[in-house]
Amino acid sequence: PPDNKQVEKKAPCPLHEYVKKILYKELNKLCVERVLRQMRKLDWHDQHVKSMAIQCLTSASNVRYNSIHCLANLVSGLALYYEDIGIQIVDAVIEDIRLGLEINLAKFNQRRVSMVKYLAELYNYRMVESSIIFKTLYTLITFGVSYDLNELIANADTCADPLDNYFRIRLVCTLLDTCGQYFDRGSTKKKLDCYLIYFQRYYMFKKEFGQSVDIARPYDRFDIEFVFTDIISSLRPEFKFANTYEQACEQVSKMEGEIRDSIVQ
């Protein structure tokens, strides 16, 4: 037999196991207070403990999906005492979303949905401002995105956002579903109105041209169509849906024209 050394398993660190237990197994909306008290008792001045705890608090995908808001609540409670921890967690969440766009592997899909939801919940608990949410929203529909069909088909294997990949639409919808209802007045309302028009263009492009290459998962397309129309009609009941990609582009150029005029005046 080969003389391979067996990889020695590291003995689990008891503190790490405990943090995992209270965050991932026990956390629910009834015991946020109690878990917060336990988390405050950690030795936050120990670099090792601190980085372990920050990593645990960032991994929203280990928490039950419906309890992610509890994790955000917990972080906002901790940030009252340790401001830098809140900042480092937000940085890590944003980084994770960005890295997800860059690597774009299906096995991380659930993780990415959780992370986006977590960011939105952090907004609901006032850990980040709306500008971060909008930055993320625009990154989701622009990072590595191309509207050039020939280019997309030629580089189908290497491009960051392949034509038949509808996953980013789901991420945007998750984000809007979680915190979109608060963008209902003032400047954030206007920002969301603009965003939805760009988002519709992105969606219509995928819908019209994605069909040609999408054979593997024909149901994704219908599924995502419901998600898309549901979220927009719940946020903006008056929204005028475009029927074709061309119409969606017209809406974009009309809006851009109006904004340009208002700046000139």
């Binding site: 401001e83 900042i87 980040v128 971060i132 930055k135």
Partner: peptide, 19 residues
């Protein structure tokens, strides 16, 4: 993307955690 940073303000130290 997130511009906030932690700065120790000697006049207003952060609330000490009584735990």
């Amino acid at each position: 993307p997130y511009q906030r940073r932690f700065k120790l303000d000697p006049k207003n130290p952060p609330k000490k955690d009584s735990k």
